[in-house]
Simulated assay, not measured.
Amino acid sequence: MRSLKAPYKDWRRRRALERGGVRPDLVVPEAIALGERSGTWVFDPRGLGAHSIVYSGGVGDNVAWDLAVIERFGVTVHAFDPTPRSVAWLARQALPERFVHHARGLAGADGERRFEAPAKERSANYTLAVDGTGDGPLLPVARLATVARELGHARIDLLKLDVEGAEYEVLADALEHGPEFDQLLVEFHHGEGPWRLEHTLRAVAALRANGLRLFHVSRRGLELSFVRA
């Protein structure tokens, strides 16, 4: 059960976004929500089908959204997560062929990056070590442009990012170097680690400048949904 403090904290996040000009640009009446726990995402289902290109960055131990999208729309979901607990958890699951796991993380550059293990032993949410130091695992990462080129995808129909703070560098790189994406579901992490509200405001401004329009802000004020309009 959420404590009484949680709704107030959520309201403060949403209010801070509104003060920064982050409020929906348009209404998408057809929008639906799928997923479970903190992995519930609101998106525009129009046009999604078996030939749609769907990327899911950061899956941890929650693929409820990915599986629901596969079942409902017949899409193939390319999931990116190199972290040990996620890889081990995924290996124990009975996953459909259309769930394609790539044991690489998404980042703003290709190569290897240091990750920090979650504080909670049961959590699967690793984070990129911002300064590259620490005793966490060194794991492979790649730019969206790199993985899209390798997979033969000129553009992405639906991109979901839940990458524990790496979204800022992933989006900045993708907006400059591609590929284009028609819809974005992203959890921002301002208020955690070095990330501040200003980082999210700049990211939202860059997305809008590149033709994406905000149509949903979650109750927590962290998950945002954009569509190209």
Rank of each mutant, 00 (worst) to 15 (best):
R2G: 06
K5F: 15
A6S: 13
K9A: 10
K9E: 11
R19Y: 05
G20S: 04
G20L: 06
G20C: 03
G21M: 00
P29A: 07
A31P: 02
S38K: 15
G39H: 13
V42Y: 07
F43G: 01
F43Y: 13
D44E: 08
L48H: 00
G58Q: 04
V59S: 09
W65L: 09
W65M: 07
L67E: 06
L67P: 02
V69L: 11
F73L: 10
V77R: 01
S86F: 07
E97H: 07
R98N: 10
F99W: 05
H102N: 15
L106P: 01
A109N: 08
G111L: 14
G111H: 13
G111R: 09
K120Q: 13
S123A: 07
T127P: 00
D131P: 03
G134E: 04
R149V: 12
D157C: 10
V163A: 11
G165R: 03
A166T: 01
E167C: 03
Y168A: 06
F181C: 06
D182E: 11
D182I: 10
D182P: 09
E192Q: 12
E192L: 13
E198G: 05
E198L: 06
T200H: 03
L201Q: 14
N210E: 11
G211T: 01
R213N: 08
R220V: 04
L222T: 13
E223S: 09
